[in-house]
Design a protein around this nucleic acid. Structure first.
Lengths: 160, 160
DNA sequence: GTTTATGCAAAGGCTTTGCATTTCA
DNA sequence: TGAAATGCAAAGCCTTTGCATAAAC
């Protein structure tokens, strides 16, 4: 569960951002942000849309996409492409930097942290003269469950 | 330019793969592989399609997509999603493992290698019990050219 | 009162699918 | 000859766009 302070905090950040950029403070925008910070883990636009419709919000997919761009711009949300067609999002405040491990069998997404990635970013900045803004590290493979699953199938195979 | 041995080599690998899997050896499949190994750097399906049409090959987009799946499966091609809608591909033989740096202003894609990534993969395997098959590390930011470009614009701004 | 944002539906772009025809084995 | 692959066009899916209406400032 998200602490109420976090909700207040992000609403404030968003409000400041909208002022600064000369954008309007519409109820839809704040409702979407609120809904996002009520989500656990990753979500996509469709899930957000259904989730808000179920709560009787009047919101359109177009506004969801538009608002996402604003939230990405002020870094309250992160966007991911895990190889599938539709983009995945997750909230960005009060979540420490992490990367993703994706199981190619069951599509489960897990998180991990490794300090070495910061070293790699620094090296890229120095050696290539890049001004690094962000990165995505996705490690693909089989999760422990799917490894077991595969072994079960192998056993069946050799015993029949 | 691609060395002729590489072309021969990959055609052989593909041929073996098709036999092993009980797939047919169609001229289209070998023509597509050949065309891919004549490409430099990254390419997408459309570019491949246009490129082959220009050379009067009779080939359809559907066959390109189908063949890509085969080539991915036998690891002669790698697939990337750099955040845009369409998938990017690159040939995989005789190219050492590398990752990508993407400029968010001009969309240029550059390559780099860092041995630390292997250490991260090993750690994920050990700590999470994952059987790692592959990974994607994308570092986003501004390339040197676009940093200069931005500074030029800043100067104009402050001088007017 | 202007101008921006919203909602809806239509259009776009990439990819997949269905099916008749061709081709490999 | 029979099964699989091809080409074409249509359909799907996610996302963006156009435009009339509504709402912020």
């Amino acid at each position: 569960m998200m602490a109420p302070e976090v909700q207040q905090n992000v609403q404030h950040i968003f409000s400041e951002y909208l002022s600064r950029q000369g954008h309007r403070k519409t109820p839809e925008r704040f409702a979407i942000l609120s809904e996002i910070y009520a989500q656990d883990g990753h979500f996509d636009i469709e899930r957000l849309y259904v989730s808000m419709k179920r709560k009787k919000y009047r919101v359109s997919r177009a506004t969801l996409y538009n608002t996402m761009d604003l939230l990405l711009d002020c870094k309250l949300v992160r966007k991911h492409q895990f190889g599938t067609a539709q983009a995945q999002f997750e909230r960005a405040q009060n979540f420490r930097q992490h990367d993703h491990v994706i199981c190619t069998a069951c599509n489960k997404v897990m998180e991990f942290c490794d300090p070495r990635i910061q070293g790699i970013r620094n090296t890229v900045a120095e050696v290539m003269g890049f001004e690094v803004s962000h990165h995505a590290l996705h490690i693909y493979g089989l999760c422990p469950d799917c490894i077991k699953e595969r072994e079960r199938n192998h056993d069946q195979h050799s015993n029949r």
